[in-house]
Write a protein that binds this DNA or RNA. Structure first.
Lengths: 323, 323
DNA sequence: TTGTATGCGTTATCAC
DNA sequence: GTGATAACGCATACAA
């Protein structure tokens, strides 16, 4: 169009302070440019970081993000999924509470809704998550290398892929190194379950190390040990998974496998945007994990220090906080 | 209408699996039934709890909640506010980063958008928050009662009402008890600022107690003390504000003033719903705080134990977490 | 009780 | 380059 015409239009827009009405645009376009991220618990730092990852990329791509909390309930998760069609959203990044309702997902897909699953694996959907098994293998091998032998494992809930993968990685490393697991018990990813199960294990099995499927349970193990006079890393080694910024406030610093939740969120949203753009060659992505050698496990023989092993002037990571 | 007619309609709805299209409804109703909660940082447990409070009540009232993260940036906050009119939302619960753009808020109000401010006080808006000054007064008095005298204070940023109120409560209690503050310095609510300022204070002033304007800074003080060989509660008393569930993982258990963030979120949403319903007699609400007597301050003389002072079997509060 | 017409604000299309 | 018109799906108001 002619620049002069263009100018005239822009001037008119400014004069009448015209704002296009989204509702009308949606009505015609049959697209809302709003996506949701549905997750088990927004109050969990791991997930809120993931949500921020989704949101950051969504904003970049011109999408608005709706954060939906399933409150760890499959029923609420279903309600949230229903919101998708009800509210006329374009799609969603879903972190399922456990195994999601496959039939419901199919029906939503038939309605034209794009859904990307993040962090946890679900059959038939591209995987966007971390290399949990590999990270777990590395962690376990590290503890064995440090000399721990009577190793107990606090697993996560059955059926949750992250929990299963981490357990598998643990078992494989133990097998490869010819060590038999002292005990394997199932928790539910809460601090309380970690503490309770650890107390029992400490009483009955006398482990010299406990690996937990997430940091919260690992902290439970740490405190359980302390309450029985067992201090890490000397009396007992403790390690977990996640390494969100907040766990850095724990003393002693936890040995842990970092799962890049922010990046997982970003990647999931990137994939969703691609699908919304009409792409169908959806490929997942599995992020590498990072072993953080903390102070809840012994130092390597010979006194070498791990990369992140020194406490002290840790810059950043905790961001500005509240009041 | 006749029950028989009604039946016919419902059957038709079921047969054609008819779903009303929100976009069209909005277009006519000029209301989206979607509200936003805009907050400084969703990755901060204090705010994510608040967001859950908002969301829980919103769902109850038939509203959909959009969680917007300002990333502690006034600019992003403004963008989020603009989203309100852009996306055609009905209103928002706003937790401002610092002093919000009053003019912008006014303009949004003129557009018919209802905005409720939560946690932090802004002139001209009903206050929905906690009794920060009173809680701070109580906390300070408690420390003085325990015998601490050389008390330093880590304040929050200037201009943030919660920070100012807590500082005022501290100063008043000190004055009333005839004790002069050892030092008052300003931090920015981060762990790092708490640690850095505490190190300086410990070196220069030799305090026997440090009160911080939030838990994160208090934890910084705790760690700063430890790094100089000063252990709480004997060598130095430490206390803060917030007491979100996650701080319970810190050892030793922090003495802290609990701010009911979930309830604040709920109340803010309740007010918003009222306003959206056409009410104009908007009255705020100020929640009482709760003094949590932890292990980072001395026990009361005579060996009595505070209500929450015993560690150990703390049930709940941490909810299920992740993987 | 039922049917029909109209408008909400955009955008796409077509004739000018 | 411009202007008019239809259609998106729903809610309402009015007529039959």
């Amino acid at each position: 169009m002619r620049p002069e015409t263009r100018e005239k239009i822009l001037r008119a827009i400014a004069e009448l302070n015209f704002t296009p009405e989204r509702a009308a645009q949606r009505l015609r376009a049959k697209a809302s440019h709003v996506v949701a991220v549905i997750l088990p618990d927004i109050a969990n730092p791991f997930f809120s970081l993931l949500a921020r990852g989704v949101e950051s990329l969504a904003a970049e791509r011109g999408y608005c993000t709706l954060i939906c909390d399933s409150d760890n309930s499959c029923e609420k998760e279903l309600q949230n999924l229903n919101l998708l069609s009800t509210e006329g959203l374009d799609g969603a990044v879903l972190v399922p509470v456990s195994s999601p309702d496959r039939a419901r997902l199919q029906r939503l897909a038939q309605e034209g809704l794009k859904i990307v699953i993040a962090d946890r694996r679900v059959q038939g959907y591209p995987e966007i998550g971390a290399a949990n098994a590999e990270g777990s293998y590395e962690l376990t091998s590290y503890l064995l290398m440090l000399g721990y032998r009577r190793v107990g494992y606090l697993a996560g809930p059955t059926g949750v892929s992250t929990a299963e993968d981490r357990l598998a990685g643990f078992e494989e490393s133990m097998t490869v190194h010819g060590v038999t697991p002292l005990a394997i018990v199932r928790g539910d990813f809460t601090y309380e379950s970690g503490r309770r199960l650890s107390l029992k294990m400490l009483r009955e099995k006398e482990p010299d190390a406990i690996i937990a499927a997430n940091d919260l349970m690992a902290i439970g193990a740490l405190r359980a040990g302390e309450s029985r006079g067992l201090l890490a890393p000397g009396d007992i080694g403790v390690a977990g998974f996640d390494h969100v910024p907040w766990t850095q406030l724990i003393v002693p610093e936890l040995t842990s496998v970092r799962i890049p939740s922010f990046e997982i969120g970003q990647e999931a949203m990137a994939l969703l945007a691609k699908q919304l753009g009409g792409a169908s060659d959806v490929a997942g992505k599995v992020f590498a994990t990072e072993l953080v050698r903390g102070a809840t496990t012994r130092r390597v023989r010979g006194g070498k220090t791990g990369t992140s092993g020194t406490r002290g002037h840790r810059q950043g990571g905790l961001g500005r906080s509240h009041a």
